[in-house]
Amino acid sequence: MTKRVVMVAAVARNRVIGNGPDIPWRIPGEQAEFKRLTTGHVLVMGRATYESIGRPLPGRTTIVLTRDPSWSPSRLAGSHLRTGADGVLVAHSLTDALAQAALLPGDVIVAGGAQVYAEAIGLASEQVISEVPLEPEGDAFYPEIDPAVWEEVGREPFDGYERVTWLRRERLAG
Rank of each mutant, 00 (worst) to 15 (best):
T66F: 15
H92V: 02
Q115E: 03
R75W: 15
G87N: 12
V90Y: 01
Q100Y: 00
V90W: 03
L76T: 03
I109H: 15
R67G: 01
A77T: 08
A97F: 05
D86S: 15
G113R: 13
D96K: 07
L104K: 12
L94G: 02
R75S: 11
A77P: 03
P105Y: 12
V64D: 02
L104I: 03
V110A: 04
L98S: 07
A91E: 08
P73T: 06
D86Q: 15
L104R: 13
L103Q: 13
L103D: 04
A101W: 03
G113M: 07
T61E: 03
Y117E: 04
G87M: 13
A111P: 07
T61G: 06
R60N: 02
V88T: 10
A102Q: 04
A91V: 06
L57F: 12
L89T: 02
T95M: 09
L94I: 07
A102R: 02
V90I: 12
D96H: 14
Q100P: 06
V88H: 03
D96E: 14
P73M: 09
T62M: 05
A99K: 06
L98A: 09
H80G: 10
A111H: 14
S79E: 00
L76V: 02
T95P: 10
Q115N: 02
G112K: 05
S74C: 12
D68V: 12
L89D: 02
P73G: 09
G113K: 09
A114C: 12
L57H: 07
Q115A: 12
G112Q: 07
T62V: 01
A114P: 10
R82A: 08
H92R: 03
Q100I: 10
V64K: 05
V110P: 01
S70R: 15
R75Q: 11
V116W: 06
I109M: 15
S74F: 15
V88M: 04
R82C: 04
A99V: 11
G84R: 11
V108N: 01
Y117S: 04
T62S: 14
A118L: 04
D68F: 09
A118G: 07
P105W: 14
D96A: 13
A111W: 14
